[in-house]
Amino acid sequence: MSILKIDGVSKRYANHTALDNVSFSIPAGCIFGLLGPNGAGKTSLIRIITQITGADEGEIYFRGERLKPDHIKEMGYLPEERGLYKKMKVGEQLLYLAQLKGLSKAEATARIKTWIDRFEIREWLGKNIEDLSKGMQQKVQFIATVLHEPSLIILDEPFSGFDPINANLIKDEILRLRDNGATIIFSTHRMESVEELCDHISLINRSKKVLDGPVREIKDAYKTDTFQIIGNGHLMITSPDFEVLEQHENHGVFRANVRILNQAKPNDLLRYLIDRVEVHSFVELVPSINDIFIRKVKETHHA
């Protein structure tokens, strides 16, 4: 069941089109990657989903219902440009933002307590935001995003500005939230950064959707049956079923990229190799999302 269905959404500004007839749906309970280069239209789409702006054409359905103001409290949005009131105390700020999302004061206070315990930041509560480091501010902002336990969490470039330790902390939190039933939308132009996290992706380029679906399926569709082999010996492939794309040799150690042709199986290649060389490593070369994106963009340009 999809939590969000985007149906033919277009958005035009005075002199450019931000979104052009974009459709896809986001399954509930997954981590969804909204990917594309800068200026592709990701933020425009997010602003339509969070009802900051409206679409010129098309509809968005939240749990099968047409998007309405009441849905806002079920969403948590961490914008790309982070910011909090600099001269407001951490505790007050979290309370204010949670109340704006419709939480009662008592409820918000209780949840703030759980979160500050989890992040071990009790001593920050009385501090002004401006007295915190940038990483600390990001943590506070992350808490503010999820405090009202939204069922849809939208994170725009979530890892920018986090050091690796905090980035991992946030990753763990995101997985935990997903396991608790929330759906997470990641929007980023750094596709490699979320590849391992996302279950589903949608690629957007120049206001158009290029591709979407489960990551595994996409990768399967774009895999090239190429394997990287590392081993000892002198590799000479003469079979018509295998094509050597690349080969290096150094001090008796070789490294080769080989593509399987004519419906041959990886095991056939392995068998062929074992008789000739000493195999140390045999890995399928799966295209990264980045590669797929570039290929796809090239295809559409040529088409």
Binding site: I72, P79, E81, G83, L84, L100, Q141
Partner: peptide, 9 residues
């Protein structure tokens, strides 16, 4: 830049 957070509420 807090305005975007606020007006999403």
């Amino acid at each position: 830049r807090i305005v975007e957070v606020i007006i999403s509420s």
